[in-house]
Each structure stands twice: as C-alpha cells, then as structure tokens.
Design a protein around this nucleic acid. Structure first.
Lengths: 203, 203
DNA sequence: TCATGGTTTAACCAAATGGTTAACAAAAGT
DNA sequence: ACTTTTGTTAACCATTTGGTTAAACCATGA
C-alpha cells in the first residue's frame, strides 16, 4: 500500500501560499485556493482538514525559509564580519524572491502572536541568532563594541522594510520622478554593506 | 432643525479605528465595531452607509496623521539638516503613539493599491516630500551629495520597521535575554540621528 | 400637547463561506 | 477479476456576516 506521494498536495500548497500571502488567513477564501489549484474545494479539506491547518502548513514553510537565511552565521570558516555581510545579502536575495513574505509574516504574527511565539522557538533553538554571533565577535575583538540588539534591529529594518513598504515607496518615488525597483537594487545593497562596516568595523 | 452634532459618530469612528487597525478591512467585523462602540449594528449603517465607507474614513484619518509629520520639512527657519532630524523624531513620536498605524497602512495599501495611490496624491501635493528637501539641501551645499531616494528609504526603514515588526523583535529579544521596548528607545533614537549625520553631514 | 424629524433598536434577509456527505473514479492489492 | 483503499467531485448544510426594514424612542418647536 504505497502512498501515491501525490503532487496534488504540492499543487494545493503552492496555490495556498500565493493566496494566503496576498490576503492573509482571514482574507483568503478556500474557494479561491481551490480555483487556483484547479481542484474541487472539498479536496482541500480532504488533504488538510480545515483552513487553519492548511494555513499552518504554509506559515510553517514560510518561517522555515525565513530562518534558513541564518545558516551562514554558523559558518566557522568565515570571519564574523563576513558572515554578517553574507547574512544581509542572503536576506535581500530571499526577499527579492519572495517579496510578500515579510509582510505576510508580520501580518499573521501580529494577529496571532501566541502561535508565532511557539513556532519560532524551535527554529531559534536550531539557529544561533545574529545577536549571539555579534556578541561573540565583540568578545573576540573582531568587531567593535556595539549594542547587539540595536544593531540587529537596524540591520533587519534596512533590509526588510523596503520590501514591506514597496507599494508605498513606489508611489513616493513616482511622485519625485525617481525610480524604485531593480534599477536601484545595487545601490540599495551597497548602502546596507556600508552601514554594516560603519557600525561594526573595529576602529 | 439643528443637527445633534452627535458624538455617536465620534464614538463609532474611535471604535472602528481600533478594530480596523487590528484586523484590517477584511478581518474586521461590523458587529465587533458596534459592540466596541456600545451601539446597535444598524446604527453603523445609518451613519456610514456601509463597511467600505466607514473604513474609508478611518483610513483617510490615518493617512492624514501620517503626512502631518512632514510639515516640519517646510519650516524655512531651520537648516535642512535640523529639519531632517526633526522629521525623524516626529516620525518616531507618531509611531510610538500609534504603533499599529504603520502596519495598518501597509496592509491596506498592499491590498488596495489603487485606492491608496489616489488618496496619497492629494496629500503629497500639500507637503513637500523629504526627497525634494534633501535635493534642495544638496544644491545649497548644506548636505553632502547623496542618492536622495535611497536615503529616504533607508531612513524611513530605520524609523518604521521596529514598530512594524515589534511582535517579532520582542520574541527575538526575549530569546537573547535582551529587552526591546521603552528601555531601548533612547538608544534607538540616537542610532537614527547618528545615521542621518553619517550620511548627510557635509565633509 | 402633539406633531415632526432625527436617532436607535430588534428582527429579519440574502449572499458568502467553511465545512460535510454521499456517490463516483482510479489505483493498488489479492 | 474483484475487492479495498485512495483520490475527486457535485450537491448540500449551518453559520457568519454585511446590509435592510419597520417600528420605537426622544428631543424640539408650534
């Protein structure tokens, strides 16, 4: 009795990802997901029981991808400064590929904090946080003394918010006869690496 | 036939603000708003016809408050550098008072971009954008040559994202035995002023 | 006092929506 | 071949939800 290893589940998850990302847990409609997956609505329930469970899977996947970016912080073959630069780059790559991810996570976390807290714990246990790595770097003298939490918040803000608020920035840019998009990406990245160096390079 | 100048409208708007901010246009329930306002559901429709119109009022108010922070940029009695510092401070004050505002605006903008674009136009016409002011400062030699749009994006990111992602940062901070909240606020502000100086002060 | 018109409510309605059921189709096992 | 399990669907159900209606309430002015 071999499981069919069905691709339907994949198809559903893909469709659900798109719809949940755009409309969130409340805004998304099961019918909409079924339509996008090209299947009957009842099949959604066959595979995932109910909306919340389906959402849970999508959310868990997203969170997984999110934390995957932190792996590079563990790479002991690199100096800590390089790891941080690399982390920022991966983060930006990730958000470039999934621009709606950040706002999706934030929306859902703000609506259901308890769920997130529980889920994030397991991920954090597996991955050392940037904060721990920074403090380690300070102790080793590889980077100058800074408030690690604050640096972390600043860095993540610089990387993430442009994607979160892209719809707003696009309008503002247009009003100022400027562009905001791929054209600017290289400058955007550079500005973040500059920020890192400015903040953490030993004097 | 004097209009009662009813406070009911105010009460409804206050309740709607809270509920819409938390749950968004789709997630909010009219019943929930009515309950919070302590009135019958039908009264909502009596005053605001339907959900969208009510939401529209709340959204417009929020946008208004948001753009109000830009007024200081017009203050010709101040050097441009000071105006930018002041702008950042006002922005942070504003978000401290209404922490959910940023995510609310982003959520709704990303869901209904057309509406936002139309609405934002009128506001932008009345207020000079930070970008225009920066370029003016460059021309006058008050600040060094920079990419104004990029600086704007970076600055707004630094100010806003910590509020947007507060639920996430709180969890991360806790896991690292650090605090993230009012205790850190003064350092947070300082880091942003530092960023401004680092980026725009003439060499 | 009572007529008028704005304000408020309880009861109701139609549509949307998450979820279920029962039947059918397709594989897999024997 | 045929039985059992898995996959899929159309039709249906119960609840939720935005919105309506008709009646009641209440202040005000004649």
């Amino acid at each position: 009795m071999k499981l069919k290893d069905s691709k339907t589940e994949e198809v559903i998850l893909d469709a659900a990802k798109v719809v949940f990302m755009e409309f969130g847990l409340y805004g998304a409609r099961m019918q909409q997901i079924a339509d996008r997956a090209g299947i009957n609505k009842a099949l959604l329930h066959y595979y995932f029981r109910n909306k919340e469970r389906l959402f849970d899977r999508v959310f868990e996947n997203a969170l997984s991808r999110y934390f995957q970016n932190m792996e590079v912080l563990q790479d002991d073959s690199l100096p800590i400064i390089d790891r941080i630069h690399s982390y920022a780059d991966r983060f930006i790559d990730f958000l470039t590929e999934y621009p709606q991810m950040a706002i999706f996570l934030i929306k859902e976390v703000s609506l259901n904090q308890a769920l997130f807290e529980e889920k994030v714990n397991s991920h954090i246990k597996e991955n050392p946080s940037l904060i721990a790595v920074i403090n380690q770097g300070i102790q080793r003298g590889e980077i100058q003394f800074i408030n690690a939490m604050l640096f972390f918040v600043n860095l993540v803000s610089l990387c993430t918010y442009p994607f979160v608020a892209r719809p707003i920035f696009k309008v503002v840019a247009a009003k100022n006869d400027t562009m905001w998009g791929v054209e600017q990406e290289i400058y955007f990245r550079t500005s973040i690496h500059e920020f890192i160096n400015h903040k953490i390079k030993p004097l």
